[in-house]
Amino acid sequence: MSDILNLTTELIRRASVTPEDGGCQALLAARLADAGFTIENLRYGEVDNLWATHGSAAPVLVFLGHTDVVPSGPEEQWTSPPFEPTIRDRHLYGRGAADMKSGVAAMCLALEEFVQRHPDHVGTIALLLTSDEEGPSIDGVRRVAEEFRRRGQGIDWCLVGEPSSQQRLGDLIRVGRRGSLHGQLRVRGVQGHVAYPEKALNPIHAAAAALAELVATRWDEGNAEFPPTSLQISNIHAGTGANNVIPGTLDVTFNFRFSTASTAATLREQVEACLKRHDLDFSIDWNLSGEAFLTGEGRLRNATIAAIESICAITPVASTGGGTSDGRFIAPLGAEVVELGPINETIHKIDECVSIEDLERLPGLYLDIAERLLA
């Protein structure tokens, strides 16, 4: 069994459902310490974070990943147990095989090989891992980034090992992400009997026009790298369950996925201005998952493309699509951020898997990128 296959299977065996790490980081830290890395464990609440560095000067290249996984779902629906890595048809199966224990294993091996080849490399090469990427993402990279900001820890380049590829390894890289802004709106009315509406105030009726206006609003036109900002209402709740009671409150959950043409601050202002125009008695709890960011032409993006062309013999598409990743917390530190990892077809699904052929090539991709930047 190859080193990458062996290490990936060892990680999959550890049932590290968010926020549990399951001993994954201890395994990786021991390997990297043996390779000469300085190890720092940053635990916040129930979340484990690993910061492993080799070198102490600029520029700083960070490989970023997570050791936590989503729940397996109904285990009886898996062809083989989700935390017993199994090889079938030249694929490795198990929860986290693609998202993202294969990427984490490949980054660890690439870093070991890099410092063996280049013990006196320029700058700093590092690995940052968290066990809180698939969860609320509060005590993971978000908290670590706050600590880095306090310390003055700079990051020039960040390569995120998230599964970015579509049909072939390396066919797509993420060079940015839309921002994500959540809103929890409460509109207050007056509860009463449906037969006496004059003695009540129905918050559903009161909010309907405002919600329609928000849904119809064109927030921006997007730009060359991003589609226009979108608003989606995901949940509406009101009432006691009785059919003869006018509800006293209306709760609405919604989300913005926004481009660099807007900011969280401007979107909040526009929403609240609309609700005030409609004379609603309301409150909103806002939660910003991350601002939009974009990595333009630069050394990291160019090195990643060159490595893919060399090893995979294809030129990747540069995309800003998809959801969010922990790169959103690193980009505000001034870093160029690019995401490159295995095919994402089966992530979060029953029978999640990664191609062994792709798995075997992944450490070489990461090593090539590191050598182009720091060797």
Rank of each mutant, 00 (worst) to 15 (best):
N287D: 13
A265N: 14
I246M: 02
V252L: 10
K276P: 02
S259P: 13
Q232P: 07
C274F: 05
W286Y: 07
L288Y: 09
R277A: 09
E269N: 08
T249K: 06
D279V: 15
V252I: 12
I284Y: 03
G241L: 09
R277S: 13
T240Q: 14
N287F: 11
V252K: 01
N243M: 10
V252A: 04
L275E: 00
S234C: 12
V271L: 08
Q270K: 15
E291H: 07
R268H: 01
I236A: 12
A261G: 09
T260Y: 10
A238N: 10
S262I: 02
Q270H: 15
H237Y: 13
N244S: 14
A273N: 13
L280N: 05
F258Q: 01
T266E: 15
E269T: 11
I236S: 08
L288G: 07
T260Q: 04
T249D: 12
G248D: 02
W286E: 07
L280M: 08
L250W: 00
D285N: 08
G248K: 02
T260F: 06
T263C: 03
I233H: 04
T249W: 06
C274G: 11
A238T: 05
R268W: 00
T253F: 06
F254I: 03
A261M: 05
A242S: 15
T266S: 15
